[in-house]
Amino acid sequence: MRTVFRFLVAHLLVMVSAQQDDAEKLETCNVVCNCNSGEKAPSTPIQRMNQGPPGKVGPKGEIGVTGPKGLKGDTGVKGEKGEEAEQLDISQILSAIDVGSCEQLFSTYNFSVDGFYILARESANRSFEYCQLQNGFMGIYTCQAIQDRYRTNARNSGYYEFQRPDSAPFRVYCNFSQTPAATEVHHDRMIETKILSSCESNGCFSAAPDYDAKGEDLEQILKNSVSCRQYIKLRCQGVQLRRNEVSWWVSRDGDKMTYWGGATRSGYCACGESNSCLDNSYKCNCDQNSESTIASDDGYLTDKSKLPLREVKVGDMSGGNEMAWYTIGKLECFGQL
């Protein structure tokens, strides 16, 4: 019996040992190969030592859904009150929207503060210009002085007001298209005018222009300008000019001037100076005195000490076909002394 029992025990131990060997082999297969699943097997120390290079980075994933908006933060502390804006600067900027001239600033929008403004002229470009809206340019008597003081050649031609101390402003026209700038004094007789009088005696008809500047204002313009001139013209039919001293002009001091525009010698017109009159036996075209021909004598008066002319005197107009037309130009002064 004991022999049989020992045999059975030994046989049982052999069977148990064989099952354990099979289980260890199966476990080894699962760990190394994961033969039954297809999943990556856990790495062992030996496998990590022989690991290959990393693979390429995969494509970027899609952007995730935007998260919910966060809660509103706390209101910040109120800042200190800033300095008050300068009213003049704001008004100047606002006025640039539709304003094309300094005159429009004054007449349409009632601006009355002198200063630089942005103006929209006829072109699409805007310009930054000084507008004198309240009083005249104090102590300035030429347009060249304005250009020199504000250091710009881009000022727009137009009417400006000058002012002597303790006197009322007076108006001039500044022509900045010329070099040097021209200071023009306009008056009420600058277009050609037919003489309706039929008087005969010498100088019986008189035409006296009313200038925008007078007296000392005019003298300051002349005194501060480099040069001045004034255009004068007589168109005539059967009317004499310097022949027999029929017609002449009067200086600002009241002197009877015996030469005509374009000449400097007494008794001469421009054609007489150049020996180019219609009849060279006379010194003026009108002096041929033809009632069948319309002639003319014209030119600039340039003696600054005599300008502007105060009056034009014409005679010899009583005949049926005798007639005359006169033109007195603006006073033009150039530069700045």
Score class of each variant (00 low, 15 high):
204 C>F: 04
196 L>K: 12
163 Q>M: 09
170 F>A: 06
92 Q>H: 02
99 V>C: 12
147 Q>W: 01
157 S>G: 13
208 A>D: 04
98 D>F: 13
187 H>V: 02
79 G>D: 05
145 A>G: 05
181 A>I: 05
143 C>S: 09
123 S>V: 03
130 Y>I: 00
80 E>H: 07
182 A>V: 04
135 N>S: 09
199 C>P: 01
185 V>Y: 02
133 L>Q: 01
130 Y>P: 13
133 L>N: 04
134 Q>G: 10
98 D>G: 12
181 A>P: 06
161 E>Y: 14
82 G>R: 07
126 R>E: 11
126 R>D: 03
200 E>Q: 12
172 V>K: 14
188 D>V: 02
180 P>M: 04
205 F>K: 01
179 T>D: 14
118 I>V: 14
153 N>A: 07
92 Q>R: 15
84 E>S: 13
196 L>N: 15
196 L>E: 08
186 H>Y: 06
200 E>S: 05
173 Y>R: 08
123 S>R: 15
81 K>V: 11
181 A>V: 15
173 Y>Q: 08
202 N>F: 01
183 T>M: 05
143 C>W: 07
171 R>A: 06
129 E>N: 10
137 F>A: 01
146 I>V: 13
115 G>A: 14
119 L>F: 03
133 L>E: 00
167 S>A: 14
120 A>D: 01
191 I>K: 06
106 F>K: 12
98 D>Q: 11
